[in-house]
Nucleic acid binder design. Structure first.
Lengths: 228, 228
DNA sequence: CGTTAGTTCATACGTTCGTTTGAATCATAG
DNA sequence: CTATGATTCAAACGAACGTATGAACTAACG
């Protein structure tokens, strides 16, 4: 067993693939781009990962395994503190989406690069990627959904599921295009680093998500008027 | 000038491309798939559109030109009815996002196929696509943003822009994955046609968007508690 | 030391990609 | 009818794709 410098080539490939998949998508990134950026031989990907598909899965597994565990940790802590009483919706939303967004400040977990990759991949067309992500996400997502059911006993479960879906969409889009707000506005954002951007995004997104989650149910079609 | 049957081959290509781009993405769809599905010769795309990129742009332009006009029509009608007074946020949100979603029921405008394509493409990695969409969208989007500024004079414009972005994300995700709610839940949705799905989606999304838009501003980090 | 197992390397395989070409086909105008 | 210009067609182009191969290299073990 030689094991020259274990995890050196592998990690370099994963880092390069993460960056390139984020920038150009799965189909738009070639093995030659990846191995060139990682400064390893072309055959290294197939040697270490078997195929491009397996590489893609490993890129996500490396980050999502930690995210899943962290989310469960946070949820357990919240439930322990609540001592049997239902959690507040704001706690649940922050536990699920806040934990995700705070990943963007942690360079050891992929930082903004992975965050943006994940946001984009949730609407990725490739069949196997969506299937893989659904499988990786299902368990923890169900735990948080259950907690939302408990926190909002008067809201039909189906409505909560819809709104969870909407929250996921707003979050995915927000992290996928953070530095391309130009798509929706020409409002100039000062060029600062990703962490600062996250600091401004997080509280705003949280209040938006909570506002949407707690909006009046669409029974008779907005009888209340506008308000503000 | 011969002009055999004008717009027959062209339309068939556009229809096939729309379907395939929706299902497999831009990079994941080949010219041979497109021409095969459209039952036209391989060279027909380059003859009629010049390149794959130009075809993609034409696929969107065919639908977005109408959407932009319709959105402006709706906005003008609302403003005429209001006679100078600011519009209600619910009117603006319905004018912008409701008009988009109702496109999904209109088979002549691409129906759900184009709607899902558009939702996915908003997070598409390809550079030229985002640039093109931003250009096509900018003008009308700015009009609606201006109207939101007027409707919510006490809310800082920057906050409105952020929330407009969040609303766009929730909408894009909702229409991109309508029949793949499984990503976030195993809740079974009965298999019905796209229009029925839209009927259930539209009021729910609208109330969510309005709830998010009118949520309390994130000043001191959610001092109000949860409520429901 | 030599052996061995793990890793890297240059190179090539077969396929598919977007695009181009020039001849064949078609409908109309003169 | 022939002539004309737009369209369709089969075929091919070079380039890039993901993957496979077998030899070279490296470091620890017996």
């Amino acid at each position: 067993m030689a094991e020259t410098r274990p995890g050196d080539t592998r990690e370099r490939i994963l880092d390069a693939a993460e960056r390139l998949f984020m920038a150009h998508g799965y189909e738009g990134t070639s093995m030659r781009q990846i191995t060139s950026e990682a400064q390893v031989n072309l055959a290294a990907v197939n040697y270490h990962f078997g195929s491009k598909e397996s590489l893609m899965q490993e890129v996500f597994r490396r980050r999502l395994d930690w995210l899943n565990e962290e989310r469960l940790r946070v949820l357990r802590a919240l439930k322990a503190e609540a001592e049997g009483r239902p959690l507040k919706p704001s706690q649940i939303v922050d536990g699920f989406f806040g934990t995700l967004l705070r990943m963007g400040s942690d360079e050891r977990r992929g930082g903004m690069t992975f965050l943006r990759l994940l946001g984009r991949t949730l609407t990725e067309p490739s069949e196997f990627i969506r299937a893989f992500l659904a499988h990786e996400y299902q368990e923890v997502t169900d735990c948080y959904k259950e907690e939302l059911f408990r926190a909002l006993p008067d809201v039909p479960k189906a409505e909560i599921v819809w709104r969870f879906h909407f929250m996921l969409g707003a979050t995915a889009f927000a992290i996928a295009g953070t530095d391309e707000l130009r798509l929706v506005t020409d409002w100039q954002i000062e060029a600062d680093d990703a962490t600062d951007r996250l600091d401004r995004l997080l509280p705003r997104l949280m209040s938006f998500l909570l506002g949407g989650l707690r909006a009046p149910l669409p029974q008779f079609r907005d009888a209340a008027g506008d308000g503000r």
